Amino acid sequence: MTAGLLAALAAAVLAALALGSVRIPPREVVAALLPGAEPSPFRTIVLDVRLPRVLLGLAVGAGLGVVGTVLQALVRNRLADPFLLGISSGASTGAVLVLVLGIGATTAVALPAGAFAGSLAAFLLVYGLARNGGGMTGTRLVLAGVTISYVFTALTTLVLVASSRPEHFREALYWSLGGLGSARWDTVWLPAVVVGLALPLLLALARPLDLLLVGEEGAIVLGLDVARFRAAVFVLVSLVTAVLVAASGAVGFIGLMVPHAARLLVGAAHRALLPVAALGGAVALVVADLAARTVAAPQDVPVGVLTALIGGPLFLWLMRRRSVDGTEGAPA
């Protein structure tokens, strides 16, 4: 299964480097990637324009796939993802505040720091609302997340309306729709490093994540400090999400649908599930971005628009299927 996904990923990367407003033969793409190749227009397009965008898509897609998988295990609800839980909206608000207020906006860490602060604030509110008035359930947390997502979206709009600079609206549109068009070599390294560090760390937590699938009481009996574990992993997930949103905007539905596809392929055990979710998310976002670049060429459609158009109907189908099967609220 992993070999098949790696082959699909290689094919997606090659297609993304070759296709676009300028079509480049595959052999020219390979030649451009070789060290010491002669300078040429094709080499410039591949190395300076398309390769950073593809690498950012790989990092963001893999990160969203992993984050969605972990969140669904933590809340034991397969409808959970960073977008539904308000983390992406909070990160967008934090990033837009940095842009509008000009708080170190020219540095490499300012946007991720602002996005992280916003995402953490959003999740703390969601977590508090979900626990208020009784035990926290997956359905309660998702509903609280949708509510907080609307609140932070409204805050973002309010900040932009209060701003006197029209360019802020164009920058904020990037965060709200999501896209990889601003990818540059200096914006790729941070999400790549964060995802590269988070994946092995979460793999090391595969057994506690599996224990959560048996239920909170069962996990406690088996020796897991559920409250402390959830809090620590939620902070880690918020950090990863913040960095991804700071790099690409709020790309929805990758973190929701990819974990479902991964479970169909390898089951629910997280040691096998997390790598497949990472590869699946990377393939999904690279292919979606390729479609976004070519479906209305030379117009570059924000990839978040395309993932929403595809993921929205799939999400509705999933909800209908769970309702018909009588599995609403079932654990992940």
Rank of each mutant, 00 (worst) to 15 (best):
5 L>D: 02
13 V>Q: 09
19 L>A: 13
19 L>T: 12
22 V>D: 15
32 A>I: 01
33 L>N: 06
39 P>K: 15
39 P>L: 10
42 F>R: 07
43 R>G: 06
44 T>M: 06
51 L>D: 02
53 R>E: 13
56 L>N: 11
58 L>Q: 04
59 A>M: 06
62 A>V: 00
66 V>S: 03
69 T>I: 03
80 A>C: 07
81 D>F: 03
83 F>G: 08
86 G>Y: 04
88 S>F: 04
88 S>M: 05
89 S>H: 13
94 G>D: 06
104 G>L: 01
106 T>M: 14
108 A>T: 13
112 P>F: 09
116 F>N: 02
116 F>M: 08
122 A>T: 05
125 L>W: 01
125 L>K: 03
128 G>R: 14
129 L>S: 02
129 L>C: 05
130 A>N: 05
141 L>H: 04
144 A>M: 14
154 A>H: 12
161 V>K: 05
163 S>P: 05
165 R>E: 15
178 G>A: 07
178 G>Y: 01
178 G>Q: 05
181 G>F: 04
183 A>E: 05
186 D>T: 08
187 T>H: 08
196 G>S: 11
200 P>T: 09
207 R>E: 10
208 P>N: 00
208 P>E: 02
208 P>V: 12
213 L>W: 02
217 E>G: 07
218 G>Q: 07
222 L>P: 02
223 G>W: 08
224 L>Y: 09
245 V>W: 03
248 S>G: 05
253 F>W: 13
254 I>Q: 02
255 G>F: 10
256 L>A: 01
257 M>S: 15
259 P>T: 06
259 P>R: 00
264 L>K: 09
264 L>E: 15
264 L>V: 12
268 A>D: 08
272 A>G: 14
275 P>M: 09
280 G>T: 01
282 A>S: 13
285 L>A: 08
289 D>E: 12
291 A>S: 12
296 A>I: 06
297 A>K: 03
302 P>Q: 02
303 V>W: 00
303 V>L: 01
310 I>S: 15
323 S>M: 08
328 E>G: 03
328 E>V: 15
331 P>A: 00
332 A>F: 14
